[in-house]
Nucleic acid binder design. Structure first.
Length: 481
RNA sequence: CGGGGUGUAGUAUAUCGGUAGUAUCUAUGUUUUGGGAACAUAAGGGCCGGGUUCGAUUCCCGGCACCCCGACCA
């Protein structure tokens, strides 16, 4: 009991530290002083570099499946948003509206896109006439505005950056395949690049996207045990196609509505990255997402060593570039200890120290950010050692996060255990009736929601944790960001 | 929008109804450099408006901002 209490304390204090790291390490700041725009973020270069890397990796994967990039307007006529009933219901409370422009009141207000389904599908209906125009596979990198009541840096800001993919297919089956294909790309990105293990599954009725037939998600666990919806992929069915007249003539000349999907991933994942790997020393970046993978710190205690050490550092720097490692040579005139602390705080995966002692023995010292382990490596083997160590770091970070996820996921069968488990920050596998009312009740009493109906759900008869009604499988409950 | 809290230097903080202090950061100089260097000098401050008072950064009222907790959500 005492142990649990201490752990909770530790977790809480960590959660507080994260918000500090957002500012210090990632260099983003929420707009505050004298600004009417609340909860927007300024992403400075070192944070934006992470987003650029994300864009690069995803773009490549999208293009490999035939998706093309395009761009649509940020201003959307209000009437378009109203076309699909459940869509407007879901988004109306958080939409920002432009009522005046050009010095006059507008006849029809324009909304700032909270997402682009409506304006894109209005256009798609003109682009698509025949089954030969399908599938239509479009992605857009853009900003969107959602006037949330409460904001939180990176995880929920008024304006955020994201990519939103939108596709139209001639068959329901093809659309469903696309939905799962994109979810898989997100899972690959989360696990193999950001080293964040995720649980893929389907959203419950009340958590799904406004206007979708089904929403699929990958859910990650932060260090405090709370869930983060990493990204989602929606099967829109024909809901929007019917509202926006997205139709085509099939082989037999019959008019048919398209089957649509949409899928997105936002700057929220940068927050997730920080909250998954950071430790008490600061940020920890997995090598495959780190804009700078290695920092080289030359050590020059005596002036007469300086030239030799600097020359060697330059050589190491150039050699690393040859094997595709991005590195930084820190030749500032400050003490080495100060540099170590700075780069550790910024999460650079690997540090190379080069000094006179190393030159004498034709070696260098490499230090891992994740474990702090120091190793002496002979110069000719350096490139190889760096490449293999970065790989070890990448794998270790995933392992650590995955162990945490596995250890903190439990199955429970009684309401008392359920409450206890949720309070201690676990992912809980429990039986559930599937009714939205029951979910609402559980949320009110415990703060937990259905994160997803996992793909690995096993057929098993039981009774709903709250209502006692029969259920044939467990879903995942957790508190979430 | 409801409940609670806080506004002092770029940052973090202290004190006080009567000259606002410390650390850090910044600038310059000297000595330093294998885990956050030392000394010297300089620069920099009370959210906004009103009231009480001889005098307000302090007390009171109003505004604004920010933080935490709820409802909303990627």
């Amino acid at each position: 009991m005492e142990q649990t209490k201490n752990d909770e304390k530790k977790i809480t204090s960590r959660a507080v530290d994260y918000s500090q790291w957002y500012l210090d390490v990632i260099e983003a700041a929420q707009l505050a002083e004298n600004s009417p725009v609340k909860g927007c973020m300024i992403i400075k270069p070192c944070g934006y570099a992470l987003w650029e890397k994300t864009q690069k990796i995803l773009d490549e994967k999208f293009k490999a499946t035939g998706v093309e990039n395009a761009y649509f307007p940020m201003l959307i006529p209000e009437r378009l948003l109203k076309r699909e009933e459940s869509h407007i219901e879901g988004f109306a409370p958080e939409v920002a509206v432009v009522t005046h422009a050009g010095g006059k009141k507008l006849e029809e207000p324009l909304i700032l896109r909270p997402t682009s389904e409506t304006i894109m599908y209005e256009v798609f209906s003109k682009w698509i006439r025949s089954h030969r125009d399908l599938p239509l596979l479009i992605n857009q990198w853009a900003n969107v505005i959602r006037w949330e009541m409460r904001t939180r840096l990176f995880l929920r800001t008024t304006e955020f950056l994201w990519q939103e993919g939108h596709t139209v297919h001639s068959t329901e089956e093809e659309a469903q395949n696309r939905v799962l294909m994109m979810l898989n790309i997100y899972k690959d990105f989360a696990e193999n690049y950001m080293a964040i293990p995720v649980i893929p599954g389907r959203k419950s009725e009340s958590e799904k996207f406004a206007g979708a037939k089904d929403t699929y998600t990958i859910e990650a666990m932060m260090q405090d045990g709370k869930a983060l919806q990493f990204s989602t992929s929606h099967n829109l069915g024909q809901n929007f196609a019917k509202a926006f007249d997205v139709n085509f003539l099939d082989e037999s000349g019959t008019k048919q509505y398209g089957w649509q999907t949409s899928w997105g991933l936002s700057t929220r994942v940068i927050g997730g990255l920080i909250m998954t790997h950071s430790d008490d020393k600061g940020l920890v970046l997995p090598p495959k997402i780190a804009p700078t993978q290695v920092v080289i710190v030359p050590i020059v205690p005596k002036e007469w060593d300086k030239q030799l050490v600097m020359e060697e550092s330059q050589t190491v720097f150039s050699n690393l570039r040859l094997v595709g490692i991005s590195s930084k040579l820190d030749d500032r005139n400050i003490r080495p200890g100060e540099k170590y602390y700075e780069w550790e705080k910024k999460g650079i995966p690997l540090r190379i120290e080069i000094g006179p002692k190393d030159l004498a023995s034709n070696t260098v010292v490499i230090v891992r950010r994740d474990t702090g382990e120091k190793k002496t490596v002979s110069l000719p083997d350096l490139n190889e050692a760096v490449v293999s160590t970065l790989e070890l770091i990448q794998n270790n970070l995933f392992e650590q996060a995955n162990n945490r996820l596995v250890e903190n996921t439990i199955s429970v069968d009684s309401w008392e255990d359920f409450i206890k488990a949720i309070e201690s920050g676990k992912f809980v596998r429990a039986h559930y009736s599937g009714s939205a009312d029951v979910e609402e009740e559980i949320k009110k009493e415990t703060g937990a929601t259905v994160r997803c109906i996992p793909f690995d759900q096993v057929e098993e008869s039981g009774v709903c944790i709250k209502s006692g009604k029969p259920s044939n499988g467990r879903v995942i409950f957790a508190k979430s960001y």
